[in-house]
Amino acid sequence: MTTNVTSMITMDVTKDNAVLNIALDHLPVDRKFGGGSWMASSSSLEESRIIVLRYIFGLILRGLVGFKLWLLMGHSAFQPDNRITRHRKLWGSMKARGAGISHSGASYEEMIEHDGKLKYFGAKELSELSVESVVKAISEEHCAYLAILPEFTNVNEVIDSGWTVDAGFDKALLYRISNKNGLLLKSAGEFDDPESGFVAIGDGELLKKIIQQD
């Protein structure tokens, strides 16, 4: 059975639209942001996200030569400062939880320390074969985004300050992604929603270039 992916775009997320609505004060100043969404309905939330993420990968390969897809992930809560935490860092801790990322490329990690506790944030370059493991990982650890970035981006500059994930997009992270001429994506839809997938924010012209590959 073929599952259709529904794609939508808006060139301005601050104006009322059916794709992505974000108040101006939740965005970096002096910039205009477009939004995109890719949604599908399948037998489960995870299956829908797998279908959509594979679809997005295809759009990137066809329409954005010189760009790469990255998983940006961090610890939601501060971890105890001990030998195990420092040894596993982020990606080792995800592997220990049974949610390691397969078939990935370049990998980075940065540590943030506060009141004697630690958080790790990281980035992994993804391949088409990473998709199922990525969807599993973001179900395990919700402090996660995806980013579409030019291939020679200094990714450490993107992840070194960390981020949060809430109902919107982390404003500081969005600023850093925007400075790198990239797009920021996050998962959308809950287990009881009829559709789920991913939403994106960034330069409207870049989003249009992806959407036009549909």
Rank of each mutant, 00 (worst) to 15 (best):
S76M: 08
S187E: 12
A96N: 14
H103I: 02
S127G: 15
I138W: 00
Y55R: 05
G34V: 04
W38V: 01
T14A: 06
S187P: 07
I101C: 10
L126W: 08
T3N: 08
G63K: 04
R62T: 12
H114P: 00
H103C: 13
T14W: 06
E128V: 13
G197L: 07
L146W: 01
G35K: 04
P150G: 13
H75D: 15
T14Q: 03
R86Q: 11
I159H: 02
D193N: 00
R31V: 09
P150S: 12
L207I: 15
G58F: 10
H103V: 01
M73D: 14
S48C: 08
A172H: 04
I22T: 05
L149H: 07
S104K: 14
H103F: 14
L149K: 01
G202L: 00
L27I: 03
A77Y: 14
I101M: 11
D170W: 05
R62E: 13
R97S: 13
P194A: 03
A137T: 12
F191A: 12
G182L: 06
V29C: 08
K171V: 03
V5P: 04
K124T: 11
K32N: 11
I210C: 12
E46N: 11
K119Q: 15
S104E: 11
L45Q: 07
K180Q: 15
V135F: 01
V158K: 01
T14P: 08
S7L: 11
V13F: 08
E113T: 15
E205T: 08
A77G: 10
E141W: 07
I177D: 04
D30T: 05
L183D: 04
S196I: 03
S133A: 10
R54D: 13
P28H: 05
N154P: 00
I210E: 12
T10E: 05
K124D: 02
V158I: 15
L174C: 01
W163A: 01
E205Y: 09
E128K: 13
I112P: 09
Q213C: 13
R97A: 11
S102V: 09
E195K: 08
T153M: 02
K171A: 03
L61F: 12
I51F: 05
N17D: 01
S93H: 14
Y175S: 15
T2K: 08
W70K: 04
D203S: 15
R54E: 12
A167G: 15
M8Q: 15
A172E: 05
W38K: 01
M94E: 13
Y145G: 07
D25W: 00
G105N: 10
G36I: 02
D166T: 07
L183I: 01
L184F: 08
L185F: 14
Y108M: 14
A77K: 14
V29D: 13
L69Y: 12
G182F: 10
L185Y: 03
D203H: 13
